[in-house]
């Protein structure tokens, strides 16, 4: 465990907890894309199957449980909670996320490390995580203004993946056998997707103006 990875996990944890806190406290999910939250729940459900078969560490298991619990809670709040669901912007959150799931499934069947069910689902989750933020970014573009908690959520998610890239570089140089091309390329694509959001996020933060994303 290196500092980049720990910082990455903590940032990732913060992103989901910030979002869950927002939704729970102000009983609103305005600006939040349910599609992205459902995709993340699917990412965790297909990636953390090994929680029952391989024990890596207490930290690993606890974090997986927290991510599973928080992502499914967020989906439940937006779908089922009688107050929160009213603030869900169904008309604007129209990204057809099945168009993301199917290509990731096919790609996992084509490019993977081992042809086992667990490994295929794990690879699927890696590809899906890379594109899961798209419905949220599209929603932010449409709603123009974004309130700072949603902005923070996307920012923290981008920061977590950037820290993971530093972690992979660190591990590549310290553990020779550590080579995971699939994870590295998908992680890089994911971080690049955030790049333009980052640009506008820093611009607005620097000029101390409300974040405006260009249409």
């Amino acid at each position: 465990m290196n500092i980049f990875r720990l910082a990455g996990d903590m940032t990732h944890l913060a992103s989901v907890l910030v979002l869950l806190l927002k939704i729970h406290t102000i009983k609103s999910c305005a600006g939040v894309s349910l599609k992205t939250q459902e995709l993340y729940a699917l990412v965790f459900a297909t990636r953390y199957l090994d929680i029952f078969t391989d024990f890596i560490s207490v930290y690993n298991t606890v974090m997986k449980l927290i991510f599973l619990g928080s992502s499914f809670s967020i989906v439940w709040y937006i779908r089922r909670h009688k107050i929160v669901r009213r603030s869900y912007d169904k008309e604007q959150d129209t990204f057809r996320h099945y168009f993301l799931v199917l290509p990731c499934l096919l790609l996992a069947l084509l490019i993977h490390e081992k042809f086992t069910v667990k490994e295929l689902l794990w690879t699927f989750s890696i590809y899906l995580e890379a594109v899961a933020i798209l419905p949220q970014l599209v929603l932010l573009q449409r709603t123009r203004n974004i309130d700072n908690l949603t902005g923070q959520y996307v920012f923290l998610l981008g920061a977590y993946r950037s820290l993971y890239i530093l972690n992979w570089i660190y591990r590549y140089f310290t553990e020779r056998h550590f080579v995971h091309w699939i994870t590295w390329i998908a992680g890089l694509v994911q971080t690049l997707l955030y790049a333009d959001f980052f640009y506008y996020y820093f611009e607005s933060w620097k000029n101390n103006v409300k974040l405006q994303l260009p249409a």
Binding site: H12, D50, D54, K64, N167, H177, H180
Partner: peptide, 10 residues
């Protein structure tokens, strides 16, 4: 012998 790489990251 290189053991199959388990995915130890989140």
């Amino acid at each position: 012998k290189q053991q199959p790489q388990i995915h130890d990251e989140l």
